[in-house]
Write a protein that binds this DNA or RNA. Structure first.
Length: 1010
RNA sequence: GCCAGAGUGGUGUAAUGGUAGCCACGAGGGACUUAAAAUCCCUUGUCUUCGCGGACGUACGGGUUCGAGUCCCGUCUCUGGUACCA
């Protein structure tokens, strides 16, 4: 083969790999294992753009490197194939989402293959296959049939719990979750419960449970969304508004694992940013729960005795009515001058006095009207209403007013706060707004007439039993005091909520639950999978039920209706990495043997956007499976790398907004053809001058444009003397930058002919160009999107330069983790490098001309420096520097005219993880078996080839380098110092001063201090 | 606001505390060619000098050090995340 033709060799090797299953991983091997995982893609209809493969290329390089290093590498790919876009498309077109999904997957597989990734395609999985989601449903049933025992700090089978109920009732059971939802009963009462009562009693213990929950309801999508699917009050997919709504929902009790999810982070080799995001998301806070008793209790209970009666659940002993608040600053309790409840707080109705009833009702109604989005964007506005009721501060029995305000969230803590206006800025603003007192509580607080001061410094004042104490002394004293009175206790709170686990949508895993007499039962494991039924339309039913309500005769055992919600998008992706270990197992979600062999993922490559969603859910499921002894490692993903996003580089043209509108002279009639009314675009230089701060520049630019305009008007007037134009003046001249498709721009020069053909309204475009007749377009870095015309398709680049060039170029762009703009221009550089590499084997693009001559020391030095650095770089995921290293190496070998097998063969191995097709081809030409390069072994680094006899030292005076001098590599610092001082160095550069000190860093440099 | 991370030529970037700008792109000049493409060679941080050279230069202001792009303190800007979380 003469010249380097990527289009031929790449197709050839891709076909070879596919036919020979070259990258198949085996579950039995003497080799050490290594598991490299890419994040599970959702196969979108748009296919891949150049930003998507970045992480895949990096992980493939590591994969191929590890194979060379003798590892048995598992590197799988599959598809998260349930999801909203396919379903939205189905609603619009009536096409079954399975069909569009299959088509999209086909495109993905084709695109991924054309990039030469070394996936073991025999392990491909799809979450929407029944053979896969059978096990997703199976895990759900495990969750449904488990509870979390706080005494053993792990999930346990529900049967253990019911056995304890039967033996000793609910007494003494400590389970994760809210005890407020649970009944207390004796063993005798349990025995007397009906089956329905028993199931109802058990439900609030389950790790998958159904409950009325405040959810993010998205009317635009017709479903609920989880917190991580909502951004700024809008749905992440589609951007529809989201509102709070109370609905019965399936939930997963992820909060049971909050502490373990938090603690586990410390052992993970993950980016700090991601760990920090998970810590914030879990949001552990250590504080206290304090109860404020209601003043004038009787008065209020009389006012609303029904609500008060509700509050006395049967079986609980009578307690004085109180409001529990959660605080992390119990030390500030003497400064608590009022309480604020969330408008949804359960005691609101009970507490409201007749005088305030109208105001409170009005406030609650107003809160409901405000969408979640308004509440979030409008955080500065202070609003609230007084209930008329008072509570007693438990530390001093002072009466405090009880208010409602929507800045208090129903879902966090107890839904009520004690407001300490001197120490909390929101409380401060609230107090100022409503004229409530702001007493100081610490002698260190400053500027209380301006703002709150949350300091923990100083000593307490106006604070009863803690007066004069410090923060450290006061907190335990107060908690002890409150505990003794039975009005408070230390408490840990988490910001994280249980995960809502149902979607009112079609295209997802059916939840394996059926209803008998209104009670939820899990279907038998033997009856899995519960297959997604066919339906006529993918919309909700007329009665507002989810689409599954349309399924005909869809009943368990022909009798019992199924749950109509499906699982959320993250269900299937929470355990997929386990299925890859044993993807076709029909008897188990993964065999014990395969699970124990592969253990956990050694390297997980993916975007940071999954930090708080997928990565948290997957860890949660893993810990749960571990509690059930179904998996064996501590955490699922040992090392995580976030590849940065590749941003688009948009190009702009500058339209001069000139008026060509006209009227005929009175009594005349004219029609000017559109083709004679141009749209004027000015080159960037002119547009920049026009937008410049410099008035002279701006005036000059304006004049250039207006003189062009006047010429044009006058030529139109000579042709149409009857027209009167509304002329553009210097004052109303403006310039609008417009996006232009990046494919029409090369090195920021616009292809003006292509631009004119691009759209009808640019057909008659005219240009004011640079002096050399080029049109320079502007540019800006933005996200890649169709609307910005900056999307670059990898297929086009592969067609032009080859996959190897694209792989190298994406790595060459910069550090993997960094966000960086895409600029196609530079790809010619790596393409040139590949050609040069080829020419080391095929001089002048002729026949293979590799010789068996022995290598020279200079050649060996180049090679071994490359081996050393390539290895270091890949171990620290610094791929950009290895590409530049390869370029240097090839440049030097070209200069040395090196065509020797002893050098080139190891070089091919070094490059092979990056440019696998080229490497395979050359490897075969060198006489090796086709396809054998991937396990050929990594070249061994030999330090001795790098040893130099002579080292050139830079000589500096006071840190400024002045000269260079050669020394024997073995020279000692003392010898070097003597030699430097003996030379004329100081005389030439020392400005007559004498040396105070000489610093010699061996092998590095010499600095003379004067 | 809070939490991360980052600021180096026209651009992407490189630099175990030790000669700042490697490797590329772009630009300028040249060779080859009827021409173009491809390929090859030279120049390319700024200022200064005919040149040798010199001065300045890693967002800004300080500090530590023989020596700072790198470490420390403060400021500014940008990017990402998060936000009434009590």
């Amino acid at each position: 083969m003469p010249a380097y033709r990527p289009e031929e060799i790449e197709k050839k090797w891709q076909a070879h790999w596919k036919a020979h299953h070259t990258f198949q991983a085996h579950n039995h091997s003497d080799k050490p294992k290594y598991y490299v995982l890419d994040m599970f893609p959702y196969p979108s209809g748009a296919g891949l753009h150049v930003g998507h493969p970045l992480g895949y290329i990096a992980s493939d390089i590591v994969t191929r490197y590890k194979r060379l290093r003798g590892f048995n590498v598992l590197h799988p790919m599959g598809f998260d194939s349930f999801g909203l876009p396919a379903e939205q498309y189905a609603i619009q077109t009536g096409q079954h989402p399975a069909l569009t999904t299959d088509k999209n997957i086909e495109t993905y597989v084709q695109q991924l293959s054309s990039l030469g990734f070394s996936y073991d395609w025999d392990r491909e999985i799809r979450t929407s296959d029944a053979s896969y989601y059978k096990w997703t449903q199976w895990i759900f049933l495990k969750l449904f049939n488990s509870w979390y025992n706080l005494d053993t700090n792990r999930a346990e089978p529900l049967t253990d719990l019911t056995a304890r109920f039967a033996a000793s009732g609910s007494e003494g059971i400590r389970a994760a979750g809210d005890d407020g939802d649970r009944l207390s009963f004796s063993a005798g009462q349990w025995q007397l419960f009906s089956e329905k009562q028993k199931l109802a009693a058990v439900l609030p213990y389950r790790l998958a449970y159904q409950q009325d929950t405040y959810v993010n309801w998205c009317p635009g999508l017709g479903t609920v969304l989880s917190n991580d699917e909502v951004k700024d009050g809008l749905s992440e997919r589609g951007g529809f508004p989201v509102e709070r709504r109370l609905m019965p929902q399936w939930n997963l009790r992820i909060t049971a694992y909050a502490d373990r999810l938090l603690a586990g982070l410390d052992q993970l080799d993950w980016p700090d940013a991601v760990k920090e995001m998970q810590r914030n998301w879990i949001g552990k806070s250590i504080g206290a729960e304090v109860e404020f008793l209601i003043k004038n209790e009787e008065l209020i209970i009389n006012n609303s005795d029904e609500a008060a009666a509700d509050n006395q659940a049967p079986g609980t002993k009578h307690q004085a009515l109180g409001i529990k608040v959660y605080t992390t600053r119990v030390d500030t309790i003497y400064g608590a001058t009022f309480l604020v409840l969330a408008p949804e707080h359960e005691l609101v109705d009970t507490l409201t006095t007749p005088d305030q009833r109208a105001a409170v009702d009005e406030y609650i109604a107003a809160t409901k009207r405000r969408s979640e989005r308004d509440r979030m964007t409008d955080v500065k506005a202070v609003s609230g209403v007084f209930t008329g009721a008072y509570a007693l501060n438990p530390v001093n029995n002072e009466p405090v007013q009880i208010w409602l305000a929507d800045y208090v969230l129903a879902g966090y803590g107890t839904g009520a706060v004690m407001a300490v206006p001197s120490g909390d800025q929101r409380d401060y603003l609230f107090a100022k707004h409503f004229g409530l007192p702001i007493p100081a509580i610490s002698d260190a607080q400053k500027d209380l007439d301006q703002q709150a001061d949350p300091t923990k410094e100083g000593r307490y004042i106006n604070s009863g039993i803690i007066n004069g104490l410090t923060y450290k002394e006061a907190t335990p004293k107060l908690i002890a005091f409150l505990e003794e009175k039975g009005l408070g206790k230390g408490k840990v709170n988490f910001r994280q909520r249980d995960a809502i686990f149902g979607r009112q949508r079609y295209w997802g895993e059916p939840i394996p639950i059926y209803y008998k007499d209104g009670t939820a039962y899990g279907i038998a494991e033997a009856d899995l999978p519960l297959v997604l039924p066919e339906i006529d339309e993918y919309k909700p039913t007329e009665t507002g039920e989810p689409p599954l309500g349309r399924a005909q005769d869809w009943l368990y055992k022909d009798k019992y209706p199924y749950e109509l919600s499906t699982m959320p998008g993250w269900a299937g992706s929470s355990w997929y990495y386990l299925r890859y270990m044993d993807p076709t197992n029909e008897a188990r979600f993964v065999s014990e043997e395969a699970e124990q062999y592969w253990g956990s993922v050694d390297l997980y490559m993916g975007g940071a956007e999954h930090a708080t969603g997928h990565l948290l859910y997957a860890r949660f499921w893993y810990l749960f499976l571990k509690d059930l002894n179904l998996v064996s490692s501590g955490e699922p993903f040992q090392k995580l790398i976030n590849q940065g996003m590749i941003l688009g580089r948009s190009n702009f043209v500058y339209r001069a907004n000139l008026s060509f509108t006209y009227n005929p002279k009175p009594g005349r009639n004219i029609e000017i053809s559109l083709s004679e009314i141009p749209t004027l675009f000015v080159t960037k230089t002119l547009a920049d001058s026009f937008n410049s701060e410099d008035a002279t520049k701006k005036a000059e630019a304006t004049e250039v444009i207006l003189s062009w305009y006047r010429n044009r008007i006058s030529s139109l007037l000579s042709k149409y003397p009857d027209a009167v134009f509304h002329a553009t003046t210097a004052e109303d001249l403006s310039i609008t930058p417009l996006h232009v498709d990046v494919s029409m721009v090369e090195n920021d020069l616009l292809d003006m002919q292509a631009f004119k053909k691009w759209r009808p309204d640019y057909h008659f475009a005219e240009f004011i160009t640079e002096d050399n007749d080029t049109y320079v377009s502007g540019w800006e870095v933005e996200k890649m999107s169709k609307a910005k015309f900056n999307v670059v398709n990898p297929d086009v680049l592969i067609g032009k330069y080859g996959a190897d060039a694209l792989r190298l170029y994406e790595m060459f762009l910069g550090p993997l983790e960094q966000y960086k703009p895409w600029n196609t221009n530079g790809i010619s550089g790596v393409s040139g490098f590949l050609k040069k590499l080829w020419r080391l084997f095929h001089p002048e693009d002729g026949d293979l001309a590799v010789t068996d001559e022995p290598a020279t020391p200079a050649e060996l030095k180049v090679l071994h420096r490359a081996i050393q650095k390539a290895q270091e770089d890949i171990e620290k995921f610094s791929f950009n520097t290895s590409v530049s290293l390869f370029m240097i190496t090839v440049n030097e070998l070209t200069a040395l005219k090196c065509h020797k097998r002893a050098i080139l063969e190891p070089l091919v191995l070094l490059v092979s993880p990056y440019a696998p097709h080229l490497a395979e081809e050359l490897w075969q030409e060198l006489g090796h078996a086709p396809g054998s390069i991937s396990t050929a072994g990594y070249p061994e680094f030999r330090e001795e080839y790098l040893v130099e006899d002579v080292v050139t030292y830079p000589l500096a005076i006071n840190g400024k380098v002045r000269e260079q001098m050669d020394f024997a590599a073995a020279a000692t610092p003392a010898e070097i110092e003597t030699a430097v001082l003996a030379s004329d160095f100081l005389a030439k550069h020392g400005e007559g001063k004498s040396a105070k000190k000489v610093i010699v860093v061996k092998g590095r440099m010499v600095n003379v201090v004067v």
